[in-house]
Design a protein around this nucleic acid. Sequence first.
DNA 1: GGTTAAGCGGAACCATGTTCCGTATCGTCT
DNA 2: AGACGATACGGAACATGGTTCCGCTTAACC
Lengths: 195, 195
Amino acid sequence: MTDTESGSAQPAPQKRADARRNQQRLLDAAAAAFITSGVDAPVRDIATKAGVGVGTIYRHFPTRADLIVAVYRHQVEACAEAGPTLLAESSTPHTALARWIDLFVDFLVTKHGLAEALQSDDAAFENLHPYFLDRLVPVCAQLLDTAATAGEIVRDLDAYELLRGVGNLCIGAGNDSRYDARRLVALLIAGLRLR
Amino acid sequence: MTDTESGSAQPAPQKRADARRNQQRLLDAAAAAFITSGVDAPVRDIATKAGVGVGTIYRHFPTRADLIVAVYRHQVEACAEAGPTLLAESSTPHTALARWIDLFVDFLVTKHGLAEALQSDDAAFENLHPYFLDRLVPVCAQLLDTAATAGEIVRDLDAYELLRGVGNLCIGAGNDSRYDARRLVALLIAGLRLR
DNA sequence: GGTTAAGCGGAACCATGTTCCGTATCGTCT
DNA sequence: AGACGATACGGAACATGGTTCCGCTTAACC
């Protein structure tokens, strides 16, 4: 699926074996660290866990966002691909939209601190926006548009704004039993409905 | 209103003049710094702007939250007091609720980074939650309860959750013209309505 | 085995928050 | 006025975490 190896022509000079090995170790260590300490686990910790020096982490993943993207790429892809599927399988476009948003929320609340990072304007996370947005906004837009065309929801909200809103609502879910992000997201989606 | 001076008895030994002067300077400098650099403006910057040493800032405001609270206390009070007033003046409880939430949103989006800080689990901001919540949750609860009793909105959402949700939605407003927190908050409030 | 460039490690540097203590100043008492 | 103790001050020193850089290692190829 990705553009690594077996590509069209020459531009893949095949990295050295130790480089590939270290990259994998870093991904594993980062995934583990993200679970225990959240997505802003100290760089040194991740490097130590992977048994490499800090320099190596920066060589493979220049910014923290690159590392996060690499770790979660599969899941984001899965979420993106679920959009059309749900649209085909659900009884109404609004149902599909609601279910898809559920997937998105699940993804965010299970990754400690990811929602925060996504909204943060910290330079380290800057590349996170483009990646998530490029991949998910079109999917969400299609769901919104289909539902709007079916006359189920209001028209004047674009996918970007909705995704950011949902992402924002997910901030701090998980840390606080009195706050249930899913319920608020559900209210937001309910607010979209035409009455 | 506050419990400073002219109190009941002995426990106010009257601070030294330079201490009071520095405290005021710090408040002014912090207010200015918060506008230009957000609520996490570097401690040293604020101290320099106020013409004092960093030690002085910590003596007067042990945590950043204390400083933020001191700077914005008036406005939080005003917001809290507006609750009953709106309830008395508005045509319906739901209108009062919507207007009050508007005030709250206005407050948050005009203070660069305050919404972020409010939701952050950073230890430095820990005292921010109690203050805001103690002051505003009861007000919001009364608005919610009145509207629910009037049969205008759903019952199963408590004030804490709503305020956190609205606070979350305000994160990053102001930095991004494509994201309009007010619109999403309005949708959320719309989602509360019984239909 | 010899050569070379990709890759590595981690010391060093920078930015920030936080603590601590020697010194300066205030307020008061004589 | 002068002295004295308590209060408050400043900023150096320390802690933490991100980021850079360069001398050394080693995989890959001849």
